[in-house]
Amino acid sequence: MADQASQGFFSPVLRSARLNAARPWLKGTVLDVGCGSGALAAFVDKDKYTGFDQDHQSIEVARRDFPAHGFCTSLPDNAQYDTVVALALLEHLSDPQKELEKWAEKLAPGGNIVLTTPHKAFRIAHDLGAKIGLFSSGAADEHEEMFDRRGLHRLAQQSGLSVVHYERFLAWANQLLVLNAPSRH
């Protein structure tokens, strides 16, 4: 999925709101999963940031805009991070539980996974907004599953993760979820 923050009249506003919601939770080394064009890199020291996206065009833009930061098109092997971030990505995945489990393996002890996702109650508004150009039509078309609080909590539990924090933002249309893995012995 290509970075779609520049598509749709309000898409930059949505991106900014997601970044602002996640920023307080960025600690230590950061793996930005689905980093797109790397906007989150602006808020993380170059030595502590790794951006990952499978879309090569988005990574080219990220490398151009943030040349001192690290970006890759495959998930780094054998690396651990204090924070794994996935902004507006979970709803696009065909198997979000599998991906959460994969991201949890990348967490350093005491680390957190920080997620944002639109709330499923706003699906119709999001889809209609995409049809008239307010939001990215591509992003709306690629939504696999929309979540509410209960669904996110259930997904976390099924993935062996604990919910540290949950909140709604952007007029309750989006949600932030912070997860951590139980101590591994």
Rank of each mutant, 00 (worst) to 15 (best):
G129W: 07
V30H: 06
S6P: 00
L128Q: 12
M1N: 02
G38Y: 02
G160T: 04
A104M: 02
T117D: 02
G110I: 13
I124Y: 10
E167N: 07
S74T: 11
L115I: 03
I132K: 04
G111E: 12
A139G: 15
D127M: 01
V163H: 06
Y166F: 13
E91C: 09
S136C: 12
G70A: 05
D82M: 15
F135D: 00
G38A: 05
Q80L: 15
L90V: 13
D3C: 02
V164F: 07
D47M: 11
D55L: 09
R23F: 11
I59N: 00
P109I: 12
L176N: 03
V44F: 05
R154E: 08
M1I: 06
D65L: 07
G151C: 12
A68I: 10
V178S: 06
C35S: 13
G111V: 15
L40D: 01
R63P: 00
K46H: 10
I59Y: 00
A41M: 04
L26Y: 13
T83M: 01
E99C: 03
E105T: 10
A88S: 14
V114R: 02
P182I: 00
N180C: 14
Q157M: 07
H143I: 09
L14W: 08
L134S: 03
H119K: 06
R18H: 11
A88I: 01
L176A: 07
L152I: 14
A139I: 08
E144F: 04
R15Y: 01
E144A: 08
A125N: 00
Y166Q: 04
H92A: 02
V30Y: 06
S183P: 13
F135R: 01
L128N: 06
P76R: 03
G129P: 06
L170E: 05
H119C: 03
R63Y: 00
Q175C: 05
T73D: 02
D3H: 03
M1T: 03
L152E: 01
S136T: 07
Q80P: 05
F66M: 08
S6Q: 09
N180F: 07
K106P: 09
T73Q: 00
K106D: 12
I132E: 03
A39V: 03
L179Q: 09
L100S: 09
S137Y: 07
Q4D: 02
D45C: 06
K102S: 05
Q57A: 15
F122E: 00
H143N: 12
L100T: 14
L14V: 14
A121L: 10
E167I: 04
L179Y: 14
L93W: 10
K46S: 13
L31K: 02
P76I: 09
D77V: 13
R18V: 00
G151Y: 05
Y81E: 08
H126I: 12
A88T: 11
R149M: 07
A156R: 11
D53Q: 11
P12T: 08
P182H: 10
R184A: 12
H165I: 04
P96Q: 12
L128K: 14
S136I: 11
N78D: 15
R168E: 15
L152H: 03
L161N: 06
Y49Q: 04
A79C: 13
L177K: 01
L40G: 00
